[in-house]
């Protein structure tokens, strides 16, 4: 019953590698494309040996994408690749967490999860394009105020999440 989840996991990981590597190849950064391919292989290798390489995988994909922005890789490829990597990271965790789900309940869980992933895809693509379209001129004091506000909000959020 877990087969569709495994398939989706491999597909999303392959999509992440393909999108990030394609963007790198189009920008003629061959080494980065190779690195993304290696990261994908490493992730699968770790997963098949029962070790969760998800956190390290997502971290490396994100770092690679950040580096990609510096070397001129198109941000559309990078954002799409990061979203696919995020889905793979999520499914990696699902595969671990759902081992305690009864066989007959898996379709129910899977449907709810797929719906949530669809929302993620749409919202992430829409919102990720905003910083590229918006351009604001802010004074330094205002930025400092926003930063302070962000720190307070973040600490409150972490405290709430901890509870």
């Amino acid at each position: 019953m877990m087969k569709p989840i495994w398939t989706t996991f491999y597909l999303s990981l392959a999509a992440a590698v393909l999108l990030l590597a394609s963007g790198s190849l189009l920008a003629e950064v061959w080494q980065l494309a190779g690195l993304f391919a290696l990261m994908g292989i490493g992730w699968v290798w770790g997963k098949q040996r029962g070790r969760s390489a998800a956190a390290a995988g997502l971290l490396l994909f994100c770092l690679g994408a950040v580096y990609g922005t510096a070397v001129g890789v198109s941000v559309g490829w990078l954002v799409s690749g990061v979203i696919a990597a995020l889905v793979a990271w999520d499914l990696d965790s699902v595969l671990h967490r759902w081992q305690f789900v009864r066989e007959e309940d898996i379709p129910l869980f899977w449907q709810a999860h797929i719906r949530q992933l669809a929302r993620l895809l749409v919202l992430a693509l829409l919102l990720a394009s905003l910083p590229l379209l918006l351009s604001l001129q802010l004074r330094f004091g205002l930025i400092l105020g926003f930063a302070l506000l962000a720190i307070i909000a973040l600490s409150q959020f972490i405290r709430w999440a901890g509870k």
């Binding site: 994100c62 994408a65 950040v66 922005t69 510096a70 941000v75 990078l78 954002v79 990061v82 979203i83 995020l86 999520d90 949530q116 929302r119 993620l120 919202l123 992430a124 919102l127 990720a128 394009s129 905003l130 910083p131 590229l132 918006l134």
Partner: peptide, 18 residues
């Protein structure tokens, strides 16, 4: 000062928000 990097962080924040 690269909005591209900020846009890379958006999917993660959307994930947390959802």
């Amino acid at each position: 000062q690269r909005p591209q990097i900020i846009s890379l962080a958006i999917p993660l924040l959307v994930y947390i928000g959802l």
